[in-house]
Amino acid sequence: MSDKPFPTPVRVIVKNHQENIITSAWDAVEFLRRWPARRGLTYRRALQHCLDALDGIRSPKKAWTSFVAALREEGMLA
């Protein structure tokens, strides 16, 4: 299993103003596992798509898109 780099890095700001730069599906899974917000449908979809990307089932671009959507929904996209 490789890191599966994202097409572009994602800058995430959490409520305590901590900044994270997510560059791959693996980084996204690690961030999603300590997700500091509501774990609704968009979150669950992002986690599944990132895990699928790591397994080679989905593209890193699709995982990136789902991850960005989850961040945007919770106001964490910088």
Score class of each variant (00 low, 15 high):
A25G: 09
E30I: 02
G40M: 12
S66Q: 10
L54I: 08
E19M: 01
S2H: 05
S66V: 02
Q18S: 08
R34A: 13
V29W: 05
T8Q: 03
Q48L: 03
P9V: 14
P7W: 01
P5A: 15
H17S: 10
G40N: 13
A70H: 10
E74N: 05
A37C: 05
L41V: 10
P9M: 11
L47T: 05
A53R: 11
E74D: 14
A37L: 07
L54S: 04
E30V: 11
P36G: 12
Q48C: 07
A25P: 00
A25K: 04
R11L: 08
W35E: 03
H49Q: 11
T42F: 13
A78M: 00
A63F: 01
R58D: 14
Q48I: 02
A70I: 11
V29Y: 00
V29I: 10
I13N: 02
W64T: 14
P36H: 00
L47M: 15
K4N: 03
G40R: 05
P9F: 14
D27P: 15
R34W: 04
R45Y: 12
R34E: 11
D3N: 00
G40T: 10
A37G: 01
V14H: 13
A37T: 05
E73I: 06
C50T: 06
E74C: 04
L71D: 10
T23N: 13
M76T: 11
V68C: 06
T65H: 03
F31E: 09
A53P: 11
E73D: 11
C50D: 12
S59C: 07
L77A: 00
T8F: 06
P60Q: 09
A37F: 02
P7Q: 15
L77H: 12
E74Q: 08
P60D: 06
F67T: 08
V68D: 03
G75E: 11
K61E: 15
R34Q: 06
A70S: 12
A28P: 01
N16T: 05
I21W: 02
M76I: 08
D55L: 04
A78N: 14
I22A: 14
A78H: 02
P60N: 01
T65W: 15
H17G: 01
E19H: 03
